[in-house]
């Protein structure tokens, strides 16, 4: 039972890089990137709205892979990875759902529009909230790991299916509000800012996942020790 008390130099390096990259990103978003003509400054939400969505997808993809690996190898660490990634994913999905309406209100003149992407994120959010609830409501650790793995696989397989059905559903009832496409003919400076932002958010996700995983390991270590102590007593 070894707990990493000493800091891993690579993680520290990653944290430092992240700090610098985030500062640069701040400059790029608010100074370097040109103001979009039709939407004005509010378009800058794009540089953290879309990367948040990307991180959420990435996190849920990690949950999916870790779930399969868990069912296959039965190694506890995959379960820990899945749990950590799911929590981070739900957080970023929530951020997508919060920043989306903030963007939509001035641009489309409505807080909420049932566009395929927004709807998909809402459903995705429900799926992974259910995932986290399932984890809390099963007492046995091994059992909760198995159930969550199954649900994690189901949830991720469901994503393309949900998207397809929402798309068709919207096509039948076309919305009067057609928003300007997000990537239609991007200005080169916008593109640079966007991809840098995407990179920063990915880095952030890796950093958060490492930290969350460390916490998960400590939680498991403490609960194991407590169980041992209880058995000994």
């Amino acid at each position: 039972m070894s707990l990493e008390k000493t800091k891993n130099p690579w993680v520290t390096l990653l944290g430092a890089t992240l700090f610098i990259a985030m500062s640069v990103n701040l400059y790029l978003i608010f100074q370097f990137a040109p103001t979009e003509r039709s939407m004005g400054h509010v378009q800058r939400i794009f540089y953290f709205h879309v990367p948040s969505a990307w991180v959420a997808f990435l996190a849920f993809g990690v949950v999916f892979v870790a779930s399969i690996l868990y069912l296959w190898k039965r190694d506890r660490k995959y379960n820990m990875v899945a749990n950590s990634a799911a929590e981070i994913g739900v957080m970023f999905a929530t951020l997508v759902l919060v920043t989306g309406p903030i963007w939509a209100r001035p641009v489309w003149n409505t807080w909420w529009e049932w566009t395929p992407r927004l709807t998909l994120f809402l459903i995705l959010w429900f799926i992974y909230i259910a995932y986290l609830m399932l984890r809390q409501f099963v007492d046995n650790e091994e059992r909760s790991a198995r159930f969550c793995a199954v649900f994690g696989i189901f949830g991720f397989v469901d994503v393309p299916i949900v998207y397809m059905s929402i798309r068709l559903w919207r096509d039948i009832h076309p919305s009067p509000v057609i928003a300007g496409g997000e990537s239609s003919g991007m200005h080169p400076d916008i593109r640079v800012t966007f991809f840098f932002s995407l990179f920063v958010f990915t880095l952030l996700f890796i950093f958060m996942l490492i930290q969350r995983l460390r916490l998960e390991k400590s939680v498991v270590a403490v609960s194991d020790l407590k169980k041992e102590a209880a058995l000994a007593a």
Binding site: I29, H41, V42, R44, I45, F48, H49, S52, L95, V98, T99, I102, W103, R105, P106
Partner: peptide
């Protein structure tokens, strides 16, 4: 709108 979104994130 922009600043509130950024702050939330």
């Amino acid at each position: 709108f922009l600043f509130s979104a950024y702050t939330i994130v």
